[in-house]
C-alpha cells in the first residue's frame, strides 16, 4: 500500500508539472497577450494547451483516487510541491535564471507547505480520535 501512495504522489506531481509546462509553452506561442478572441484562438490552436488539459484531468483523477485513502498531509504537500519541479524544469527547458531571491522565496514557501501538510495530518488524527 505504501508503494501505491508513493506512486500516486509522484503521479500527482508529474501531472501538475506537465500542466504548468504546457501552459507556459502554449502561452508563449500565443503571445502577445490580449483579452480578445484572436488571442484565445491562438492559445487553443497550439497543441500544448491540450497537454495542459491532460495534466488537469490526470491530476484531478489522481487526487480523487488518492484522497479516498491516502493521508491528507502528504497528499496536500504533493499537490503543492510542484514549485520545486517546475523551478528545476524552467531552468533546464526555458533557461530561466534562478536568482537568489527566488531561491529564498521558494525555501520559505516550501517550509510553509510542509507546516501546512503537518497541520492537515494532525487535524485528521484528531478527527479520527473523536468517537463516532
Amino acid at each position: 500500500m505504501k508503494r501505491f501512495y508513493a506512486v500516486g504522489f509522484a503521479l500527482l506531481l508529474a501531472f501538475d508539472t506537465l500542466n504548468l509546462i504546457c501552459f507556459k509553452l502554449a502561452g508563449t506561442e500565443a503571445l502577445p497577450v490580449a483579452m480578445d478572441i484572436a488571442w484565445l484562438l491562438r492559445v487553443f490552436s497550439h497543441p500544448w494547451i491540450y497537454g495542459a488539459v491532460v495534466g488537469y484531468i490526470g491530476a484531478f483523477v489522481t487526487w480523487m483516487s488518492l484522497l479516498k485513502h491516502a493521508p491528507i498531509g502528504p497528499a496536500f504537500a504533493a499537490s503543492h510541491l510542484e514549485v520545486i519541479s517546475v523551478m528545476l524544469l524552467s531552468w533546464w527547458m526555458f533557461s530561466e535564471p534562478v536568482t537568489a531571491t527566488q531561491i529564498a522565496g521558494a525555501l520559505a514557501i516550501v517550509a510553509g507547505i510542509v507546516c501546512l501538510a503537518f497541520a492537515e495530518s494532525r487535524e485528521e488524527t484528531a478527527a479520527d480520535a473523536v468517537p463516532a
Binding site: V33, W39, I49
Partner: peptide, 10 residues
Amino acid sequence: IAFLSLVPLS
C-alpha cells in the same frame, strides 16, 4: 495562461 505567458514560469 495570460499571467504565465508574461512572467518566467518559475
